[in-house]
Structure formats: structure tokens, C-alpha cells
Amino acid sequence: MSVLELRGIMKAFGENVVLRGVDLAVDEHRVVALIGGSGSGKSTLLRCASLLETVDDGQVLLDGEDVTDPRVDADRVRRRMGVVFQAYNLFPHLSVLDNVTLAPTAVHGRPRAEAVEEARGLLGRIGLADKALEYPDRLSGGQQQRVAIVRALAVRPRVLLLDEVTSALDPELVGEVLALVREVAGQGMTIVMATHEMGFARQVADTVAFLDGGVLLESGPPGQVLGDPEHPRTRQFLARVIDAGRL
């Protein structure tokens, strides 16, 4: 059984149809990379999967449970997923440590001392133990994004959803964030990531899925989708990416 399964996801904002029936299954310990141009629906798909948007049609299944069923308490479902955003979205009025311990204590009801200890451990592992009491605006973009990843991991999610987590970063800061994602993936976390980093997708992802105009045109092992794509649209997209020097 897949950890996360999307079935026929449809989503429109007014007249603008963004997703036209997307199916995607993510098995445990697997990493799926969503690629595609801007406006192809990657972010919206992740927002639908994390129940930050309500789908117009289709289902999201988490561990086999249909969590788009209106009778399901969405707040309880979101606790089991971790989301990392393009713009980090750390809480600026809370210290780094409080950002990380907020959900474990307020949502999962874990004792503060225990949550603090674990948060400090996580921050230590990313080399930011000495920043625990700083406020986010004192950190670099790369540091902030790594804290955001740790914040998402602190709730021990079933699946981690990464929405272009390096797109807002200065180029020299991209590496440290990707290194952390690679490490998290290596520990067996189930991950769905929207990304423009094709090289990274090739190395880390088990499956690459190409979204175009709200449709999942093809998906498969990275070598196949990135190296020898079936669909002409995929080839066009990859050619443009190569021109831009990102592969």
C-alpha cells in the first residue's frame, strides 16, 4: 500500500483549471520528484496533497485512508505530513527552537522538555545548535530553509512534501539545503518534491514525474524520464532546461 496516493486530482481557481485529473502513488521510503515548467501545477498538486487546498474532484489517500472525505478532520491529517515551502515560512516572532518545538508541543501534546531536547538534537545535526535561540531573520536563507525542513521533520511525518525548496535561495546556498534533503531521503523518509534541480532529481529520486498543463504526462525512473523521455513535451521541457544550464 502506498503511503500517499493521489487519484484523479482536479483543481481550478475560478476559470483557471490548474490540475486536470492527476494520479500519483508514492510508496514508503520512496522519493518522487515532480518536474515541469512554472504554472504546470506542481505547487498546487502539493498543496492539494497536504490539504492546504480542497480538491474539486479526486481523492488523496494517506496510508490508504481517503483524507479528502469531508467527514475526516483535516487538522488531524495535516499532523501526519510535513510541508516545506519555497519561501521557508518560518515564524518570524518565534526563536528557531520555538519554530521547531511548536507543532510537537501544541499539536502532538508532547512534553516541552522532551520536544526541546529532540529539537536541539535535530538542530545540532544540521550544524545550527548555536542558532537555537536566534530569531529566523538572523539566519541566512539556506539556514532558514534547513530549519524549516527540521521543523517539518519534528512532527515525525509519514511523508515530506517539498515545494521548490531551493528556488528562493542564492545559488551558493542551494547545496547545503539539497545535502540535507539527500540525507533525509537516505534515512528512508518518504518524499514528494517539486523541483527545478534536475541533477538533484536524477541522483536522489526513485521516480520522476513530469507535469504539463495540469496533466501528469509521464513518470518513471529518473534515467528514463530525464534521459530518454517518451513524450515530446517532456523532451521540449528538458531541452529548455538544458539551454538554461540547469542540468
Partner: peptide, 16 residues
């Protein structure tokens, strides 16, 4: 709004 999205994605209720 991204602050709300981040909070809700962590499982916080509207009130929290």
C-alpha cells in the same frame, strides 16, 4: 497568508 499555510501544514487548528 504563507504564515497561515505553514501553521496549518503543521497541524495547528484555525484557532491555534
Amino acid at each position: 497568508p504563507s504564515q497561515r499555510a505553514a501553521a496549518r501544514s503543521l497541524g495547528l487548528t484555525h484557532r491555534q
